[in-house]
Design a protein around this nucleic acid. Structure first.
Lengths: 190, 190
DNA sequence: CGTCTATTTGAATGTACTCAAAAGCGGTGG
DNA sequence: CCACCGCTTTTGAGTACATTCAAATAGACG
């Protein structure tokens, strides 16, 4: 049941078996149906989720009322509105299931508990956040220095099968372009 | 001597006085002259620095050989090439002093030591990374949904005096535009 | 003072956007 | 089971914001 999350954690931090067991006992399994919300923009993110199976998108509504996809969370990813989760302020993003999902969830107090009481878990989440930051910083640089085609190709390189699971318009949004533009890019490459 | 860094840490994590003393004893003070390098792209980031005084820029060279400024580190900021520091691989960014700097520095083993041995320091760095990630994610969304003028205004809002310390061309680079464009933006607002 | 770099200004260009509409696809109900 | 409806993707034409190339001016540093 917990193979994926255990593997995920052990990649970054050495956790003893008995500590890992204590950790997994704190997890609550939650199921979301396609289009269900994990958190809505403006509400409060009280939980953090490991995606054991499924797919969620984190997006904001921009000035024109369109989605801007900030994050694509596939199996093996952690997701929440981190700003809200950790500041207690309203969420900046809506996080919505794009497929039926199986999540392992920690609420805020469980999260704080496991961080402070289980040796190695706080370190795991530090490394997770650092890695996410490194990745985000590179997205910023690419947003400015790469054109839409290059960004699309780079994404396919990382996540070869993403266009089989994520709608083209959502990939476009994630890449910072309009769906029409991505369509043109894809159909003019020949 | 350590007021600024103590304040910085206590904002995120409760650290006992004696632990804080142990922590500050691990710090090495380093001075950089203007234009000195903290780390160069392609080399190895072996240290992480708290900027007690001064200003550094982190940038990469893009395909055309131009700087792309990814990060502006003023007094009170932490900086390093986090990717290199934590993976041991070559740096993606060059970090260079733009003013004479006073830094408090930890090498990798000191950093790992203080994280694992001082209660609250690992938590501090987790929260620091999480906050940086949240900030970066918002920069991505703004890169895509705001135009150059809006991004410039938002930056001035956050860091009102940044244009007195950072060259216009470096601000332009940080905002993802060419120096000519920022010049036009500034001089056509009237 | 002279040189090098930064900033400003001009004109032409290009990438992606906007508005618009057609075609394709998928789910739902008659 | 097929017809319909809504949403996604494609395609076209005109537009806009920022870029590129170019050159002049201003400013900083030795």
């Amino acid at each position: 049941m917990f193979q994926l999350i255990k593997k995920n954690i052990l990649q970054k931090s050495n956790i003893q078996d008995h500590e890992m067991d204590r950790f997994t006992k704190m997890l609550k399994t939650e199921y979301l149906n396609k289009n269900d919300f994990f958190v809505k923009q403006g509400e409060y993110a009280k939980k953090i989720a490991f995606v054991n199976k499924g797919l969620l998108l984190a997006y904001t509504l921009n000035d024109k009322g369109n989605r801007r996809v900030a994050q694509i969370a596939l199996d093996g990813y952690w997701t929440t509105d981190l700003f809200s989760f950790y500041s207690g302020k309203p969420s900046l993003f809506t996080i919505q299931a794009q497929e039926d999902c199986e999540l392992f969830v920690l609420n805020k107090s469980s999260f704080n508990d496991v961080c402070s009481s289980i040796l190695g878990i706080e370190k795991f989440f530090r490394l997770l956040a650092e890695e996410a930051y490194v990745y985000a910083l590179n997205r910023i640089v690419n947003a400015y220095d790469k054109n839409a085609l290059e960004r699309y190709q780079a994404l396919l390189q990382e996540q070869a099968n993403i266009n089989q699971r994520v709608k083209q318009k959502d990939i476009a949004s994630y890449l910072g372009i309009e769906p029409q533009s991505l369509s043109r890019i894809i159909n003019s490459k020949l």
